[in-house]
């Protein structure tokens, strides 16, 4: 029987045993280290904030600019509108949106109007660029004409006259006295 026969059979077993012991020791050391190390202060989880690039809409004469900044935080979206300085800010659920219609600027650059999509409902708001006036035109229209559905506001017929379309008729909304003027039927 060759001399290394026994060694040759016993060596793998020995190696296996030593490896196992080393792994167990290292595991114990690791457990001891992680359980005894000084705990780091628990930092509050920062909400995921995402700011998209601003949307800028120039007035038709190129003399004024409306800027919309959108900040998404978890399931909420904050919209900030500025004309030189911030004039309006609103936080809504991320399932809803606020947008700037193409004809947002009044011809004299004194007012803007915004479209707010709230799922089944749409609100149109008029704002003075001074930031002092905010009129929910849709709400006023629903109060005045509960049987009519406001389909869209397309733009401005004159400096203070917004154009409203319903399924049955068109209206002007006079911003200065907040009155509706019935135009010819659609």
């Amino acid at each position: 029987m060759p001399k290394n026969f026994i060694t040759g059979r016993k060596m793998p077993l020995l190696q296996f045993m030593i490896t196992k012991i080393v792994i167990i020791i290292l595991s114990i050391m690791g457990l001891v280290y992680f359980s005894l190390r000084p705990s780091s202060p628990q930092l509050p989880t920062a909400p995921l904030v995402k700011t998209s690039s601003p949307t800028i809409v120039e007035s038709p004469d190129g003399k004024a600019r409306l800027t919309m900044k959108k900040t998404i935080s978890n399931s909420l979206v904050n919209y900030t509108f500025s004309v030189d300085k911030p004039i309006f800010s609103k936080t809504i659920a991320s399932t809803n949106t606020i947008s700037i219609p193409h004809n947002t600027w009044s011809p004299d650059n004194k007012y803007i109007f915004l479209k707010e999509n709230l799922g089944k409902e749409t609100n149109y708001n008029v704002l003075s660029v001074s930031g002092k006036e905010l009129i929910n035109v849709s709400s006023l229209f629903r109060q005045k004409y509960p049987d009519l559905k406001l389909v869209e506001i397309t733009g401005w017929a004159a400096p203070t006259l917004l154009i409203l379309n319903t399924q049955k008729a068109s209206f002007w909304f006079n911003v200065t006295n907040q009155s509706f003027i019935l135009l010819s039927s659609l």
């Binding site: 038709p60 004809n103 600027w105 011809p107 397309t154 733009g155 401005w156 017929a157």
Partner: peptide, 12 residues
Amino acid sequence: GTYWHNNFGYPM
């Protein structure tokens, strides 16, 4: 150019 209305995209 038009300075009296802003309703582009619609006959005016």
